[in-house]
């Protein structure tokens, strides 16, 4: 299907790929924020995942190992944030910002000597005949496994948050930590686990940048993707399904710019690049004005909790 000189199936396929890093990171952050924690260090955790994933994949000559390493190191890195905010009761906003600063520095030191190397290839999943279905084939069935994994994670996070007891507890902790504590839940421990999950997802998203999207390691290569992930969580009003929609919308706007240019349209790049953020603000306003408190922002977001048994 060609519209205005653009092949829509291919455009949609590339936005699905382009959206994977932000989707993974945003899903992780959704769970973190649902538990009442605002971790602004997503960018830092992603870049750590990008560099460690790359190093592991190159050293072990195995891309899957790279993704696992990226996730593990992202989680390990988020432990700094967890320790400071959950144990030492430090302010979350300041700690998150410091985490990003620290992550960019650490990754650059760790990545020295890994510039200009090609990582092992993460190929498309062989889906046989499905690949050749007109329109749907090129759009849906020619991707690598991480794309499908990220889609699965959308479902999994939705399921866990909304259909399981664990999800109920996470949400309870995020809505009212005093009450959750009174019910006997260990607020800080639950939050710590959520932060670790967020770190793992961000780390894996970062690894996707360095292993698939731009298969190489260069300093500061995530270049603000983590901040976009934060925006998407809000845009999605903390709901995994809408996170997917948000990631595709942002991803779509990202790939639309060059595609329109390549097809010969003269477009004002600045307006296109600010569009996602303006749209997010508008969505926020609509949601918050329409239904008052049902905006979905966890009531305890950003507040630390301290209790003694």
């Amino acid at each position: 299907m060609i519209v205005g000189g653009l092949d829509i199936a291919i455009l949609l396929a590339s936005l699905m790929v382009g959206a994977v890093p932000i989707l993974l990171a945003a899903l992780g952050e959704t769970v973190v924020e649902r538990s009442g924690v605002l971790n602004l260090g997503v960018e830092g955790m992603m870049i750590i995942g990008a560099v460690t994933g790359f190093i592991a994949a190159v050293t072990l000559e195995n891309a899957v190992a790279g993704f696992i390493a990226g996730a593990l190191c992202g989680a390990a890195f988020s432990l700094i944030f967890a320790a400071l905010t959950q144990v030492f009761q430090a302010n979350q906003v300041a700690t998150g910002l410091a985490l990003t600063l620290f992550g960019i520095g650490v990754s650059s030191l760790a990545g020295q000597g890994y510039n200009g190397i090609k990582p092992p290839v993460t190929g498309a999943v062989p889906l046989g005949l499905l690949r050749d279905i007109p329109f749907l084939g090129p759009m849906l069935f020619r991707h690598d496994w991480v794309v499908y994994f990220s889609l699965f994670m959308v479902f999994a996070t939705w399921f866990v948050l909304n259909r399981t007891r664990a999800g109920l507890i996470i949400r309870a902790v995020g809505e009212n930590h005093e009450a959750a504590h009174a019910l006997g839940y260990k607020v800080n421990r639950i939050r710590l686990l959520c932060i670790l999950f967020g770190g793992a997802m961000a780390g894996m998203g970062g690894a996707y940048v360095s292993l698939v999207r731009v298969p190489q390691w260069t300093d500061n290569m995530t270049n603000g993707v983590g901040w976009i992930a934060l925006a998407i969580v809000v845009f999605a009003s903390w709901r995994p399904g809408r996170v997917l929609f948000g990631a595709w919308l942002f991803g779509g706007l990202m790939v639309l710019g060059p595609n329109l240019q390549a097809a010969g349209y003269a477009i004002p790049v600045e307006y296109l690049s600010m569009a996602p953020y303006v749209i997010t603000i508008i969505v926020l306003v609509i949601m918050s004005s329409g239904r008052g408190r049902s905006l979905g922002a966890p009531a305890s977001l950003g507040q630390n909790f301290h209790a003694s048994r």
Binding site: L230, M274, I281, V285, S288
Partner: peptide
């Protein structure tokens, strides 16, 4: 104003506006 009129979260709006400002700066 968004906070006072519509109860929109100021953390997020102010953060989003950073990116808009950066695009204006480039322009």
């Amino acid at each position: 104003i968004l906070k006072t009129k519509f109860n929109t979260n100021e953390i997020l709006v102010s953060l989003m506006l950073v990116y808009v400002a950066q695009a204006i700066l480039a322009k």
